[in-house]
Design a protein around this nucleic acid. Sequence first.
DNA 1: AATACGGGGCA
DNA 2: TGCCCAGTATT
Length: 357
Amino acid sequence: MRDDDAAGQARSDTLLEWYDRHARDLPWRVPPGAARSPDPYRIWLSEVMLQQTTVAAVRAYFERFTQLWPTVADLAQADDGRVMAEWAGLGYYARARNLLKCARVVAAEHQGRFPDRQEDLLKLPGIGPYTAAAIAAIAFDRPAVVMDGNVERVMARLHDIHTPLPAAKPELKAEAAALTPAARPGDYAQAVMDLGATICTPRSPACGICPWRAPCLARARGTAAVLPRKAPKKAKPVRLGIAYVGRTPGGDWLLERRPDSGLLGGMLGWPGSPWAETTPAETPPVAARWCDVGAEARHTFTHFHLRLALRVAVIDPAQVPADGPLLLVPKHRFRPSDLPTVMRKAFDLAHGAMESP
DNA sequence: AATACGGGGCA
DNA sequence: TGCCCAGTATT
């Protein structure tokens, strides 16, 4: 065991030396060696945004959110619709709903301070095993074992593990735990994830410049590019739907607030038919002369492809019930960027069709 | 254990 | 255009 400990120590030291020289400059990051300590609010916000999402996509959203809501107390008081609108385009909208829930729990039940232990962080909405470990390690420098897709890939290659995911997870986690150091665990966690994101990449890893090229078994055996192995995935079915893009004579838009649970939950969207495998029936939200737009919006979600046929009409505002999910958004307050991507695609096509009759 | 849940990047 | 990537909540 002592040999393993010593080898692990040497590896984490090697990685920390690399991180001291090559740490990425990120808006939410405190550089290694800096005097200040990280703001748990900013670490939490960035980690939730980074779930299933690339750094490139997150940057602008992070800047915007921290500018609008500099503290967790500010976010806790924010308007729900405003937060959903600012999240639009980032995807996985349950994250935004849980973000608000979590901010309100922290503000009301934790005096505006995030818990510093993984076990307590795990109880908060939207914080699972990965995010709890990441906050504990990065914000509070606790030796939590941070397991994300990057770490899984790095461990699979370092130890040349060929068991397919997700079956390999326990083994990969054990290897990651054995390497997590007692000194500078926060920097170590960020270092492994940086390594996975910049060098030990999913395709064509840059083994030649990797700080772990010496101990890496997959590098020695030439198997890095095929690891980690994954269980085969199933094909995505096609679903069909119709969306109705309506506008009043005054130029206000007819939208609906989608239910909190389910696909695009809590987001604005165009009213329409359910999305199913078969051709949908016409289900106009209000009576009007709906015109077929020649084009359809195509969009791929996690588990199906959608083809959305489009109808446009000038509608009578008096036809819109005051209760229910439908709402008229005034012309000057409507921002296409407040919509999830599929709804923005539908708008772009419908709007083009309305401009040129 | 399996499924629902977006969107962006790259070949 | 199509394939790859990747945490949390729910069932």
